[in-house]
């Protein structure tokens, strides 16, 4: 029950934020919420499913580019070309961009594309029983390759600069605080819905199955389930969530570029989850928001400090609180609760 109360409290906080925060701060909060959405997916795949994915940036990016391409085409100049293509001398819209003009296609691609890539990779990898650190390494290699590809295909992807200069998000004017407030509201709603959906999955039979696969994959086979399929579905779901976050990131921050998606940003997405507690969805969300808030604070006055802090955080959390802050809270609560009874059973 206390979980439900905190949930309501958080929703109220999210609803009040636009009233008290400046447009600039509200924009920052919306950005943190995007990362929090990714964190929910990571907590599902890593905390519940034991799949340490070091390539979430790829799926975030696929969602972001799918959205960004559509928005770019809406604002395209007279030749129907996005600005960066004109600058880099592209004369005709590349075939890869054409379907993005259709809003339905673009919105579907935001979730289908990352989901499909993750499903394919998961199927190939998990069916061969490649797992644990191997999977982590492969997902990291995917992130490395993806970024190099994006940077190298300047005319197609905008290269290092990525896609930027968005003034409208469908009907919304992104230069206007009112429009940006709506974008914030959409992001906040997306976070709450994602959280609830993943929570339902975690509590379902599938959630129990996922934990079983995490702890004892080989045994699950002898219950008649295919663990590879369970993992693949979960991994794809976490990718879909990351894609959604990436798509929202575009109107919220106004850019999607390779620098946000590579090996290092993908790992950064994990810092908050590790800090908050990978086994707890709420912990992961809180951790992601806290870490990104800290990052903003530090980058404003003390940018070098951030890397020390981030690196130090990883080390400290893993050494002293491998279950994250949520784990610390849980342990404290358990100790508090256990005292009166417990010894009777067992």
């Amino acid at each position: 029950m206390s979980g439900r109360i905190s949930l309501v409290l958080c929703v109220v906080l999210l609803a009040v934020a636009p009233l008290v925060l400046s447009p600039f701060r509200l924009g920052l909060l919306a950005k943190y919420l995007c990362f929090a959405i990714v964190a929910v997916g990571i907590a599902l795949a890593w905390g519940r499913g034991g799949m340490l994915t070091l390539g979430q940036g790829v799926f975030f990016g696929l969602g972001g580019y799918a959205m960004g391409m559509h928005l770019k085409l809406r604002e395209a100049g007279p030749a129907g070309l996005p600005d960066f293509m004109v600058w880099s001398g592209v004369e005709e819209l590349p075939a890869l961009w054409k379907p993005s003009a259709n809003p339905v296609f673009a919105l579907a691609a935001v979730v289908v594309l990352p989901g499909l890539v993750a499903f394919l990779l998961g199927l190939l990898v998990f069916r061969q029983r490649v797992r644990g650190a191997y999977f982590a390494i492969l997902s990291q290699a995917l992130a490395a390759a993806f970024v190099i590809l994006l940077v190298g295909r300047q005319g197609l992807t905008g290269g290092t600069n990525g896609l930027t200069n968005f003034s409208r998000f469908f009907a919304l004017d992104l230069t206007d605080p009112g429009g940006r407030r709506v974008v914030y509201a959409i992001t906040a709603a997306a976070l709450v819905l994602t959280y609830l959906a993943v929570k339902l999955v975690v509590r379902s039979r599938f959630g129990a199955l996922l934990v079983a696969v995490r702890d004892h994959e080989d045994r699950v086979r002898f219950l008649g389930y295919d663990p590879a399929l369970v993992k693949t579905i979960t991994f794809a779901a976490s990718a879909v969530v990351a894609g959604l976050a990436g798509a929202l990131f575009v109107p919220v921050v106004g850019i999607i570029s390779p620098a946000l998606l590579g090996v290092v940003p993908s790992l950064e997405l994990l810092v908050g989850v590790a800090l908050g507690g990978r086994f707890s969805l709420a912990g992961a969300v809180a951790g992601a928001i806290a870490v990104n808030y800290a990052k903003t604070l530090f980058s404003e006055d003390f940018p070098e400090g951030w890397l020390y802090l981030q690196g130090g955080l990883f080390v400290l959390v893993l050494v002293f609180a491998p279950r994250g802050l949520a784990g610390v809270v849980e342990a404290a609560r358990d100790r508090f609760r256990r005292r009166p009874r417990e010894e009777v059973a067992g």
Binding site: R205, F206, G224
Partner: peptide, 20 residues
């Protein structure tokens, strides 16, 4: 849950996604 998981192996994904 151990037993329920064992019993549920013929359930379609749709029912697996529901709560016990």
């Amino acid at each position: 849950d151990n037993l329920d998981l064992a019993a549920g192996f013929r359930l379609p994904l749709r029912s697996l996604l529901r709560r016990r």
